[in-house]
């Protein structure tokens, strides 16, 4: 109950933050009503999706300081569960998505238990190893379509189908993911102020001190990991319906896991706005670079060179990201 109240309570932010956030929200609701290109629309949907992924990562990676580089596996679990349940058993999205979340959470506990006995680099590498094992399995597993993946054929359904989330026009997808986005933001806001949120921040600071304050560090990490995976899995389920064609390579790859972590870190890990800022910078950059340079000119991967460069710059100059710079300035002005 208190969590619910906390979710809607943004009063600890300075007024300027709330004004900007309100303006962004109005823009997000108003955007589809004005004329726009389909390219802009798909970029906006991608932005909202990646904001959600980064928000999920931010709970464990940002607040908890556990650099997880395997979150794409939960995106994959969410996406595959929805796609398989739809294609094989014609299950509505609103049932398959919670099933996917449940599977992700169960899986997160199975691998989280051993994972969180590790720290630092060892944890990060092990999280990669775990997700690569799952991806390798999906690549040969016939039931899930092996390396070919699964395709949702939209002509089999009659869009707009709100139960199965099959639409012809992107605008429907836009409003569904916008709803997810707002819920995600509220969850993160409640998490930030909850007991678990405080405990995670204490763990990031110093695990020994956290333990001396009665925190079961392993369990707190596992609970947070489950929250992260639930958010990512739900968005992954949406991904399946929106993209309609999923393969292990583009739903579970390491590059995707890194991208998720990067967005949160670029924006400012451990803050509420950070993941959104990160996604707002990187997603359009990625889309426009792709469109501009594209596969057409044979310049594959040039967007990733930019990404890599940005990661290098951020980590060498300001590891707390864009929001970290803002906070630092504010602090200096106050003192």
């Amino acid at each position: 109950m208190e969590d619910l109240k906390n979710a809607f309570d943004f009063s600890d932010f300075p007024r300027i933050d709330l004004i900007v956030a309100g303006a962004v929200l109005i823009f997000l609701f108003g955007f589809p009503l004005f004329p726009h290109s389909s390219f802009a629309m798909s970029t906006m949907i991608q932005f909202l999706m990646f904001s959600l992924y980064a928000m999920g990562w931010n709970t464990i990676g940002g607040f908890g300081g556990q650099v997880d580089l395997g979150q794409a596996q939960y995106l994959g679990i969410g996406a595959y569960t929805t796609a398989i349940m739809l294609v094989r058993w014609d299950t509505p999205f609103w049932i398959s998505m919670p099933v996917g979340i449940l599977m992700s959470v169960i899986w997160s506990f199975i691998i989280g238990y051993p994972l969180f006995r590790l720290k630092g680099h060892y944890f990060a590498i092990a999280s990669i190893a775990a997700s690569l094992v799952l991806k390798d399995i999906f690549e040969v597993w016939e039931f899930v379509g092996a390396a070919r993946g699964i395709e949702i054929l939209s002509m089999k359904y009659s869009p707009p189908d709100f139960m199965r989330l099959i639409f012809k026009e992107d605008i429907y997808y836009y409003f569904v993911i916008l709803l997810f986005f707002i819920i995600g933001l509220l969850i993160l806001n409640a998490f930030r102020k909850s007991r678990l949120g405080f405990q995670l921040r204490s763990i990031r600071d110093n695990e020994d001190v956290a333990r001396s304050l009665g925190i079961n560090v392993q369990w707190a990490k596992m609970k947070t990991y489950a929250i992260a995976t639930a958010m990512i899995s739900a968005t992954g389920a949406f991904h399946a319906c929106y993209i309609k064609n999923i393969e292990p390579e583009d739903t579970m790859s390491l590059d995707l896991s890194i991208l998720i972590a990067l967005m949160a870190m670029l924006g400012g890990s451990g803050s509420l706005w950070g993941p959104i800022i990160g996604a707002a910078v990187l997603v359009p950059l990625k889309s426009y670079l792709k469109a501009l340079l594209g596969a057409a000119s044979g310049m594959v991967g040039i967007d990733l060179i930019f990404y890599g460069g940005i990661i290098m710059l951020i980590s060498a100059i300001e590891p707390k990201g864009i929001w970290g710079i803002v906070e630092k300035r504010r602090r200096r002005r106050r003192n």
Binding site: E2, N6, K193, S194, R195, F198, Q199, R201, S202, A210, L213, G214, I215
Partner: peptide
């Protein structure tokens, strides 16, 4: 907030 972390041992309410 540092002190609150300690207090959270006795209560779950923020």
């Amino acid at each position: 907030e540092n002190i609150m972390v300690g207090c959270f041992m006795r209560t779950s309410s923020t």
